[in-house]
């Protein structure tokens, strides 16, 4: 059995949450949260934490821009952020780029696409 202390990020309140896990890493108890969203956050955070990934990617042949900002279409597993960064830093996209253009489809089989979040001529 393990007890983990978290600070909820679901809203600005930042409730301190204590999660109890059994030996198989299953959540058995969540306390300290003051709403349902806190309970859900605590459970995902302990079993399969995910994060939105935002960074930039190289633009080839852009008039001015040399990089364009990108984000993951859905959160990626927290532990895979650095691997995803490596893959993104190896890739590039040809100008012109439009918001929503897919730079990498299903990056490292996470189910997340890496998409442009700005235009570049």
């Amino acid at each position: 059995m393990e007890k983990r202390e978290l600070v909820c990020v679901a809203c600005p309140l930042g409730c301190p949450i204590t999660v109890t896990l059994d030996d198989n890493n299953n959540v058995t108890d969540v306390t300290g949260n003051t709403c349902k969203r806190g309970d859900a956050y605590a459970r995902t955070e302990c079993t399969s934490p995910t994060r939105m990934l935002t960074t930039t990617v190289k633009v080839e042949g852009g008039k001015k821009a040399c990089v364009v900002p990108v984000k993951s279409s859905v959160p990626v597993p927290k532990g895979m952020m650095m691997e995803c960064m490596e893959a993104i830093n190896k890739s590039s996209i040809k100008a012109p780029v439009k918001i929503g253009d897919v730079v990498i489809k299903n990056i490292l089989d996470t189910g997340a696409d890496i998409i442009a979040t700005n235009n570049a001529e």
Binding site: M52, T54, T55, P69, K71, I99, T117, N118, N119
Partner: peptide, 25 residues
């Protein structure tokens, strides 16, 4: 907003989590 490429913008106004350039866009 053009340089704030992280997400978290627009949660209140659009009900979506956008990046800075997307919000400005």
């Amino acid at each position: 907003l053009e340089q704030c490429i992280h997400t978290g913008f627009g949660l209140h106004y659009f009900g979506e989590e956008l990046s800075g350039p997307e919000y400005a866009g």
